[in-house]
């Protein structure tokens, strides 16, 4: 009986705190993505078409994000019937977008970031050791290019 109460408590805490945190995070991601529209991150390698390059350097950004208890249970149930696991989709989406934003924040004065690469790795198993996803790390890296300004 006590165990059941704890479980329900954990699910409730996970649901309320988790979805509040996710909404908050998505709001902040959307805001910052808009603020960084002037600095595009592209996956092309070449920079010849861009103009004269003044400086280039490697920039990285990473984020480690974990799912909440409620979503973990939900995903566990989903594994019974198969199909889209929406709760994990948003987890990975958040981590990747956050990583790209941090990469841009590493060099906010750059003109463009070329050859952007995004890597995802699962760095730990869930507390029950059954799930392979639970905490994931997204890493984004690319080459930030500073162009020679006109007239200099």
């Amino acid at each position: 009986m006590v165990e059941l109460a704890i479980l329900i408590g954990l699910i409730a805490v996970g649901y309320f705190a988790g979805s509040a945190a996710e909404r908050h995070h998505y709001r902040s991601i959307a805001e910052r993505e808009e603020a960084f529209l002037h600095l595009p991150a592209i996956t092309f390698k070449s920079s010849e078409t861009l103009g004269d390059v003044a400086e280039s350097r490697l920039v990285t950004g990473c984020a480690v994000i974990s799912v909440d208890y409620f979503k973990r249970i939900l995903a566990g149930l989903r594994a019974l019937v198969g199909g889209r696991v929406k709760s994990y989709e948003s987890l990975i989406d958040r981590a990747r977008r956050e990583a790209v934003l941090r990469m841009k924040e590493a060099d906010p004065t750059a003109d463009i970031i070329v050859n952007t690469r995004i890597e995802t790795s699962s760095i730990s198993k869930g507390p029950t050791n059954r799930e392979s996803v639970g905490t994931i790390e997204a890493l984004a890296y690319g080459t930030a290019i500073h162009l020679k300004k006109q007239g200099t």
Binding site: V13, G18, H25, S66, Y69, T135
Partner: peptide, 23 residues
């Protein structure tokens, strides 16, 4: 801390720092 964070979800700042430092 990460175990606690696993209940409510969200970013594990300690791990992010760790990965950043190691990289």
């Amino acid at each position: 801390m990460a175990g606690l964070k696993n209940i409510v979800g969200g970013e594990l700042k300690g791990y992010t720092e760790l990965m950043k430092e190691s990289r």
